[in-house]
Deep mutational scan, measured.
Amino acid sequence: FEIPDDVPLPAGWEMAKTSSGQRYFLNHIDQTTTWQDPRKAMLSQM
């Protein structure tokens, strides 16, 4: 499912887009990137 862009990312995360428009996520805390939206895990725990 798609999460609306107005749902905030967890602390330390940033959303970016590739030149082709694909979204990816940067974790500044552990210096990693992922295609997986970290908000999905956050919302599934609620």
Score class of each variant (00 low, 15 high):
Phe1Asp: 15
Glu2Tyr: 11
Glu2Gln: 14
Ile3Ser: 07
Ile3Ala: 06
Pro4Arg: 14
Pro4Val: 09
Pro4Trp: 08
Asp6Lys: 12
Asp6Pro: 02
Asp6Ser: 14
Val7Tyr: 06
Val7Ile: 13
Val7Arg: 09
Val7Lys: 12
Pro8Val: 07
Pro8Phe: 00
Leu9His: 03
Leu9Glu: 04
Leu9Trp: 06
Leu9Tyr: 07
Pro10Ala: 02
Pro10Lys: 04
Pro10Gln: 01
Ala11Arg: 13
Ala11Met: 14
Ala11Gly: 10
Ala11Asp: 11
Ala11Val: 12
Gly12Cys: 04
Gly12Tyr: 03
Gly12Thr: 01
Trp13Asp: 08
Glu14Cys: 06
Glu14Leu: 02
Glu14Asn: 05
Glu14Gln: 09
Glu14Trp: 01
Met15Gln: 09
Met15Pro: 05
Met15Asp: 06
Ala16Tyr: 08
Ala16Ile: 05
Lys17Cys: 10
Lys17Gly: 04
Thr18Val: 06
Thr18Glu: 08
Ser19Leu: 11
Ser19Ala: 13
Ser19Gln: 07
Ser20Arg: 12
Ser20Ala: 12
Ser20His: 15
Ser20Asp: 15
Ser20Gly: 12
Ser20Leu: 09
Gly21Asn: 12
Gly21Val: 03
Gln22Phe: 03
Gln22Asn: 09
Arg23Leu: 12
Arg23Gly: 08
Arg23Cys: 12
Tyr24Ala: 02
Phe25Tyr: 11
Phe25Glu: 00
Leu26Thr: 06
Leu26Met: 15
Leu26Asp: 01
Asn27Asp: 07
Asn27Ala: 00
Asn27Tyr: 03
His28Asn: 09
His28Ser: 06
His28Glu: 02
His28Phe: 04
Ile29Cys: 08
Asp30Phe: 15
Gln31His: 13
Gln31Ala: 09
Gln31Pro: 00
Gln31Leu: 07
Gln31Cys: 11
Thr32Asn: 07
Thr32Ala: 06
Thr32Tyr: 15
Thr32His: 09
Thr32Leu: 11
Thr33Phe: 03
Thr33Tyr: 02
Thr33Arg: 04
Thr33His: 13
Thr33Lys: 06
Thr34Ser: 12
Trp35Gln: 04
Trp35Ser: 09
Trp35Arg: 05
Gln36Ala: 10
Asp37Ser: 02
Asp37Thr: 01
Arg39Met: 00
Arg39Thr: 06
Arg39Ile: 01
Lys40Asp: 13
Lys40Pro: 06
Ala41Trp: 09
Ala41Arg: 12
Ala41Gly: 14
Ala41Pro: 13
Ala41Ile: 02
Met42Pro: 14
Leu43Val: 14
Leu43Arg: 12
Leu43Pro: 13
Leu43Asn: 04
Ser44Ile: 03
Ser44Pro: 14
Gln45Pro: 07
Gln45Trp: 07
Gln45Lys: 15
Met46Gln: 15
